[in-house]
Write a protein that binds this DNA or RNA. Sequence first.
DNA 1: TAAAAAGTGTGATCCAGATCACAAACTTAC
DNA 2: GTAAGTTTGTGATCTGGATCACACTTTTTA
Lengths: 226, 226
Amino acid sequence: MIRNECRHCSVKSKAAKKLKDAETESLSFNCALTSFKKGHVLIKQGMLSTNVVYLRSGLIKLHIEGPYGDQIVRIVKAPGYLGLPTTFGDKINQYSITAIDEVEACFIDITTFRNLLYSNPDFSYEIIIDICRNELEIYNRCVNRSQKQIRGKIADVILEMAGPIYDSDSFTLPISQEEIGNLIDSSRESVSRILAEFEKDKIISVSGKKIEIKKRESLLMISAKG
Amino acid sequence: MIRNECRHCSVKSKAAKKLKDAETESLSFNCALTSFKKGHVLIKQGMLSTNVVYLRSGLIKLHIEGPYGDQIVRIVKAPGYLGLPTTFGDKINQYSITAIDEVEACFIDITTFRNLLYSNPDFSYEIIIDICRNELEIYNRCVNRSQKQIRGKIADVILEMAGPIYDSDSFTLPISQEEIGNLIDSSRESVSRILAEFEKDKIISVSGKKIEIKKRESLLMISAKG
DNA sequence: TAAAAAGTGTGATCCAGATCACAAACTTAC
DNA sequence: GTAAGTTTGTGATCTGGATCACACTTTTTA
């Protein structure tokens, strides 16, 4: 399963540029870049964790088992770090991370990760920026989830898949309709009905899990009007 | 309005201990600790921001104007930093921060704040821990908001007020019923009805905005069963 | 301290979307 | 390739909570 060794795989962009300076030593570590297939659980809610996950490629879902079943909080695309909160708090994972696509990732020991943060301000800075972005994303998602109705939320999911996630108007849904329901707080049946409706209105075409956007403007309108 | 000068007011706990060492210089800055009264807007959605806010004391609400009105994302108690995302992203505030209590805060220039992060790993580390905690909080809030029904959500609000926020079974609600609605995604009328119900069942006693918890176990039960 | 504005209580009505109940299609596994 | 499991489609019914409507109370303002 292991594909190759991934030296400094976590140190990218600005931080990476500084690898030549005095701090190089403390930034060096090896981690095994491993690939996992769809469905693999990288982080399991309720379990003790001693690693941060660096997601090199692929898609994951961050989901929480709530009082009434599983809820997908968000879908995250590589690259990025996962499981940071556990690095600091009580180390029991508060959520699960599951691959919803073929995924490449490596596990970085918490201590190594902490040293990295301490020894490299650029790295810390990047992490902070990253988490802040997440924070904004989740705030907006919260507002959308509660203020829009199903049609608008499904339009959003489709646009997000086409846009940030797959970068194409034609893509294969990486999750089931039930999971879409868990992502937008609605039932499997409603998702099915709305998708059928969109298809009937020639806004999208559906064949199995393949979706193609036919009228992007319509989706944008539906998304905007709540 | 200015109460006093607040040297190093942002550098607390571990980071503060290191003030004597070589990095002291870069950590030194003055900021005016100011007090604001209830309703004062510290950060305004849509406006350009060049400051991070350090909240020294008091309570604020973080709220977002969505497609269908204002939604309170969360209520935050001092101490802590506010408005971090704006420090990095496009500098346009994505949300508003409004005092819902008498509040003491100071504004730290973004550049100063960045230097602080760069020059002090302990400080960066604390900030990361802090943001991670927020992240978890907001994830859980998301799940609760969508999986529980009104009774459960109101029970949660009351318990949160009594617990983390005021540390007493008897407190004065810092927000209106309408705002509680905006916090838990429900209407003003429903909040009113549920509070009346709780009072009738002798779970709480209400007089104006004063609330006293009579049967904490009942609230916990209501919260738990969704 | 009176008038205006903001906040609250409570009934009556309505509706988006959940839930139920099956049938059909698609995926795995042996 | 057939049986078992999983995912989807679609009607019929039900319901939590929104919305409307209006009286009452508390707070703010001038």
